[in-house]
């Protein structure tokens, strides 16, 4: 992958252990503007931890992470809270379990960030939220509470909520893994549209079709390391690492 332009996300040599268990070792990652990086790999391989490091929900003990040229983690040291909060506004996060705010309506879920953090006026934030809800196909649900939505609808609201902060990069942590199979498509559609618009994205997923279709770079992780990275054609058709081959076989034979 090229590293000519200044990357939106640059991860250099990060490592992390939970006790004696090594979850990440010497991981590097560079994401260029408008690039879509898809991270795949067996469960427990460290992909979610790597993604969560990119907005400091996990803090690596070694290495550095830079977001849009600003240090997030430097030599295993997290930046102070004030700068951290400012940097997190640039990084949108979508969780496997949605994590919508159940006491707020769909509209309020989307506006709470811009209103509280960007000090946007109510009318301005509402207009932005309606625009984003239209984009994810949920205009009619603005007044509903999250508890009344399907999983696919919840995840689309979560995407709108993250987009409302107008982030420079979006992180997706297995966004379709908690969904019923028939609801996966609607979420992937929204993500594909985002990618087409040029959103910079890092996506941890088990959706190989999505990776093949949308990714600029596919990274394969195993045992806390990136064992293979390249364009999807190469990774899926001619994997170099035998562990990639066995992982892909296991995943594809399952489908």
């Amino acid at each position: 992958m090229s590293s000519t332009a200044s990357p939106i996300v640059a991860v250099r040599g990060i490592g992390k252990s939970f006790g004696a268990h090594r979850v990440l070792s010497d991981v590097a990652l560079s994401v260029q503007p408008s690039q879509v990086v898809v991270i795949i790999g067996p469960s427990g391989s460290g992909k979610s931890t790597l993604l969560r490091c990119c907005n400091a929900l996990e803090v690596p003990q070694e290495g550095s992470i830079t977001i849009c040229g600003t240090d997030l983690v430097k030599n295993g040291q997290l930046i102070p809270d004030r700068e951290l909060n400012a940097l997190r506004m640039q990084v949108g996060m979508v969780f496997q379990s949605f994590n919508l705010f159940p006491h707020l309506t769909v509209l309020e879920n989307v506006t709470v960030g811009p209103r509280q953090l960007r000090k946007m006026s109510k009318s301005h934030a509402d207009a932005l939220a309606h625009e984003l809800l239209a984009k994810v196909g949920l205009s009619q649900k603005a007044a509903a509470y999250p508890a009344t939505l399907s999983g696919g609808q919840k995840q689309r609201v979560a995407i709108a909520r993250a987009l409302a902060m107008q982030p420079r990069v979006m992180l997706f942590d297995e966004p379709t893994s908690a969904l019923d199979p028939e609801l996966v498509g609607e979420v992937l559609q929204v993500m594909k549209a985002l990618a087409r618009e040029g959103m910079t994205m890092i996506v941890v997923t088990h959706e190989m079709g999505f990776a093949r279709e949308v990714a600029d770079v596919v990274m394969v992780m195993d045992a806390g390391q990136i064992i293979e990275a390249g364009p999807p054609e190469q990774v899926f058709s001619a994997p170099q690492n035998p562990r990639t081959r066995s992982f892909l076989q296991a995943v594809i034979s399952r489908d």
Binding site: L117, A158, R161, A162
Partner: peptide, 17 residues
């Protein structure tokens, strides 16, 4: 749920917010 705090912090809110 722990995810509520994570979602709030990931938007850029401080712990207090």
């Amino acid at each position: 749920d722990r995810g509520q705090m994570e979602a709030a912090r990931s938007l850029g809110m401080s712990y207090r917010q």
